[in-house]
Structure formats: C-alpha cells, structure tokens
C-alpha cells in the first residue's frame, strides 16, 4: 500500500467521522442512563425503525450474553418501539427524524454514539434481527470473550452473517412477540459461501447463502455481503465504512489468518426471514431508504411474489455453536 493510498484512506476515515459529527445533531436523547455508561461495560449499539415485536427477545438474548448497556437510535418509529425502549432501565435511547439513507443507513448516528461512548470499551454493533453466536457462548459470557481478546491483543472480532430461514414459505409461521425467532427460522445453508479479498480495505468479502441462490442466482455480484465485524474494542478514531462490514483503519479488518491458521470468529444469526419480512420489504421499498436504490428489497419483492421457500434438501437445522464450528462457518481459534 502506497503512502498516497494510506493518506487517502486516512481522509476517508476523517470524512466519515466528520459526517458522524454532523449527523449527531439530528439525535435527540430520550433517556440516557449516564451512570450505566461509566466503568468498563460491554456496550451494544443498534439503530432501528418499527421493530417493536422483535425487541423483547432481542433485549433478553443480549442481556443473557452479558451486555451491560444498550444504546439505541430510533429512526422515527410509530409502532411503540420508542416507548417500549424508554421504559427499560439498561437502555439509553436517542431518536432521530432524519433520513436513514442520508445518514449512511444509520451508521452516521451509530458512529457518533460510538465515538462519544465507545472509546476504550468493547462495543457490539448489530441490527435487531442479528444474534451473535461465538465459541462457548452457552457457557461463557461476552465478558469472557472480550477479556480473552484483550489478552490476545485483538481489537476486533468477526462474525459472519448467517441467514436463517423457515421450512416452507416465510409467511406460514407467524412470529409472536418474545418468541425465539429461531424456533421458526431454524434452517441455514452450511457451505455455499464465496469469499474474495477486498484489497483496498484488507477485509474479506463473503457472499452466498440462501439469498444469493434464491434472489441473485443470475447476478451473483449483487448478492448482499455477509462479512461482518460487529465486536470491536472501540477507539474514537475508528469508523465503520459500510454497515458493520468493514472498518478503518484497515488493520481492524484483518480478522482472518493468511497462513493457514484459524482465528477465533463467530456468527450473527440473521432472523430476517420471518413473516414480518414481506411487510417490511414493502415498507422499505416505499421509503426507498436502503442501499443501492433498495436493490436488495426489489429483488426480494419480486422473489416474494412467488412465495419463496428457501428450504432445500441440504438445508442444515441449527443446533448450537459447536455445529457451526464443525461445519467451518466459525472457529474457536486458539480459545479453548
């Protein structure tokens, strides 16, 4: 990498941080638990819009993992999400009426919060439909993982997005509030992912899974990216580039080993494909507030008309993290 390139990346990073600062004026605090933000907590950052039905399980899941405090940005919900979150003692909530798209799909808001509250702490940035699985997550809390990453000198932990889907059309099994979404969406693709290296940012670009084979079989290049680095020991100079797919400075993206070894990694189980999906896809299309002219949602809506069934004979039923480890979707690395 030449000096010019690294200088350019530096400016890119500065620009991202500048945007975040600018957009941070759109954030209006609803309830901020300042006392909960002191010390050395594990923090979770999330931006959402109209996800009321998902929230109880989401909060419960991450509380059980040992997240100490949640920081939410509510993008103008009208389904009671805001009121519900405001009533939780371990949640700090901001609201924004600004454009989701103009704020880089919420990342500018999150970046502003990360910069302000995340410095020097382990920060988990996820969507409300993403559930982190890491090695030993049944027996060891998130704190054990972050302590271990600290002593290993690692600043970032990667967790690939694993799309989960039900058997049969997604509309068939309605999701109830508080229910574990993976009681419905319990299947996944175990081995049809393609990986390439993104040399300009040093990260891996992973595509594939049920979305690629169902919606993007003819245009695989446009299939959504599945690589994510959601857990980072934050520094105020860091910046996420697009969603949580990659970061600057580039060194943070080196969450993989190039010489044959395996670093520790996890998975983000993606509970996108529930009965709520169709309604969401239509709403998001109408708003036109998603990445690349909502190309993804356009493809979904077309596919959805035919009542898609992601399930195939070789779909794998989710059991636990060890299964994902054996299948090679994640790794314990040298954590034993």
């Amino acid at each position: 990498m030449s000096v010019v390139d690294s200088y350019r990346l530096r400016w890119r990073r500065k620009r991202l941080l500048g945007r975040a600062l600018l957009r941070s004026y759109q954030l209006r605090p609803v309830s901020v638990g300042a006392d909960r933000l002191s010390g050395d907590p594990v923090l979770l950052f999330c931006t959402l819009r109209n996800e009321r039905i998902r929230l109880p399980f989401f909060l419960q899941y991450y509380r059980d993992l040992g997240v100490d405090h949640f920081l939410f940005v509510d993008n103008d919900s009208d389904d009671g999400s805001r009121e519900y979150l405001a009533g939780q003692s371990d949640v700090s909530l901001w609201t924004s009426k600004g454009s989701y798209k103009a704020s880089r799909f919420g990342m500018d808001w999150i970046s502003a919060l990360l910069r302000r509250y995340g410095h020097g702490r382990w920060c988990l940035t996820v969507d409300v439909d993403e559930f982190l699985i890491y090695p030993f997550c049944e027996t060891r809390p998130l704190r054990a993982l972050t302590d271990w990453l600290d002593t290993s000198g690692m600043r970032a932990f990667s967790a690939m997005l694993l799309d989960m889907y039900p058997k049969g059309p997604v509309q068939d099994q309605p999701y109830r509030e508080g229910q574990n979404p993976f009681e419905i969406a319990q299947w996944f693709d175990s081995g049809n992912y393609t990986i390439s290296r993104n040399w300009s940012y040093g990260n891996l670009w992973i595509q594939g899974g049920p979305r690629a084979r169902t919606f993007f079989a003819d245009s695989p290049r446009q299939a959504p990216a599945l690589n994510k680095i959601p857990l980072v020991k934050w520094h105020r100079g860091y910046a996420y580039i697009s969603s949580t797919h990659m970061l600057l400075p580039r060194g943070l993206n080196l969450v993989f080993d190039e010489w044959g070894g395996e670093k520790a990694s996890g998975c983000l189980l993606h509970a996108k494909f529930l009965d709520t999906f169709a309604a969401k896809a239509e709403e998001e299309m109408a708003r036109g507030q998603h990445y690349a002219e909502s190309r993804e949602y356009k493809a979904y809506l077309e596919g959805l008309k035919e009542q898609p069934d992601f399930w195939c004979k070789w779909s794998e039923k989710y059991i636990n993290w060890r299964q994902l480890e054996i299948l090679g979707l994640m790794s314990k690395g040298n954590w034993a």
Binding site: S158, A159, M160, Y193, I195, R197, L204, I206, N227, V255, F256, D257, E258, W259, G260, G261, E262, K263, A264, S265, G328, L329, M330, S331, K332, G333, N334
Partner: peptide
C-alpha cells in the same frame, strides 16, 4: 487450530493466501 487450521477450509477467519 490456530496455527495450522483445517486444511481446505476457507472461511471468515481462515483465508490462506
């Protein structure tokens, strides 16, 4: 696992040159 890894596996945290 950390140093040699599983041969033939390409994944998010193992991507040999």
């Amino acid at each position: 696992r950390r140093t040699a890894g599983r041969a033939g596996l390409y994944m998010q945290s193992r991507f040999p040159n």
